[in-house]
Amino acid sequence: MSGHSKWHNIRLRKGAQDAKRGNLFTKLAREIIIAAKTGGGNPETNTRLRLAIQKAREHSMPQENIRRSIMRGTGELEGEAYEEVTYEGYGPGGVAILVECATDNRNRTVANLRSIFSKHGGRIGESGSVAYRFRPIGLIVIPRTAVEEDRLFALAIEAGAEDMRTDEENYEIVTQPEDFAKVRQAIEDAGIPMLRAEYTMEPLDLVHLEGKEAQQMLRLLERLEEDDDVQHVYANFDIADEVLEASEG
C-alpha cells in the first residue's frame, strides 16, 4: 500500500474531515454536479454519479443538497459552471503529485495551488511532468474483521479484480477501471461492508521520505486537501507508519 493510501486511511479512521464538514460538503456537491453533467442525472446508468451520491450519504450530506446538486449538474437549476482540471507538481524530495480540481475559476485555482506548493517545499510542474508515474485503478477497501481472506479473494477475482492486498487492518481490492463497477457490485451483493470504493490513481514508483521532508510533505498534502477547489490529491511518497500516525495526533 502506498504512503498516500495509508495516510488516507488514517484520516478516515480518525475523522479528520468532521471538523471541516462545510468544506467536505462543498467537495461532495461539486463531484455530484460534475458527475451529473458528464453522465446524466440517473444514478442507475451513471456509475460515477451513483458513487458520488453514496459517498455523500455516508458523510450525512442532506438529501436536499444531493438533489439540488444533481439538478445543477443536469442544468435544471442554475449555478456555477464547474470544470475538471488536473495540475501536476513536485513535493519535498521530488515526490510526484497530481491534484484534481473542480473549479469555476482556473486563475484563482492555479494561483492558490502555486502558493500552497511554494510555502511547503514544492512547486507546480508542467502538464505531463508527473502523470506518467501513476495509473488509474478502481480501489475497494474492506476491514479485515468483515470477512475471511480466502472468501473475499475468491469472490473478488471471480468478479474480475486484478489483485487483493492486505495490511494489519484492511483488505485492498484493485481493479482495472472498466471492471470496478462489476467487482463492487459483487461485493455489495455478498453483504460485505466496504470502508470506501472509488476510482483513484496508483503510483507506479515511490519516493521514501523521512525527517523534515516527511513533515513538509504531510503539511503540503493537508493544505492542498483543505482547498475548496481541490477534489483529490495523489502522491507517490513512502513515509513510515509511525510518522503518519503521529502527524494526526
Score class of each variant (00 low, 15 high):
residue 184 R to Y: 08
residue 211 G to Y: 04
residue 163 D to N: 12
residue 88 E to A: 01
residue 121 G to R: 14
residue 137 I to D: 01
residue 151 R to N: 05
residue 109 T to P: 07
residue 194 M to H: 06
residue 107 N to V: 15
residue 188 E to I: 09
residue 220 L to N: 02
residue 136 P to Y: 00
residue 159 A to W: 09
residue 201 M to K: 15
residue 121 G to P: 12
residue 180 F to Q: 10
residue 161 A to W: 00
residue 113 L to C: 12
residue 221 L to E: 06
residue 214 A to C: 04
residue 105 N to K: 12
residue 202 E to K: 14
residue 176 Q to H: 10
residue 136 P to H: 04
residue 161 A to V: 12
residue 198 E to D: 06
residue 193 P to W: 02
residue 185 Q to I: 03
residue 126 E to N: 08
residue 181 A to E: 13
residue 171 Y to Q: 05
residue 204 L to M: 09
residue 151 R to L: 01
residue 217 M to V: 07
residue 94 G to C: 03
residue 191 G to F: 02
residue 223 R to V: 15
residue 160 G to P: 15
residue 135 R to H: 10
residue 230 V to R: 06
residue 181 A to S: 10
residue 190 A to Q: 11
residue 174 V to Y: 07
residue 218 L to P: 14
residue 99 V to N: 05
residue 186 A to Y: 15
residue 170 N to T: 00
residue 146 A to K: 04
residue 140 I to G: 01
residue 123 R to L: 11
residue 200 T to P: 09
residue 230 V to F: 09
residue 203 P to W: 09
residue 115 S to L: 05
residue 112 N to H: 07
residue 116 I to Y: 04
residue 126 E to C: 01
residue 133 R to W: 01
residue 153 F to T: 13
residue 106 R to Q: 08
residue 148 E to T: 02
residue 170 N to G: 02
residue 230 V to Y: 09
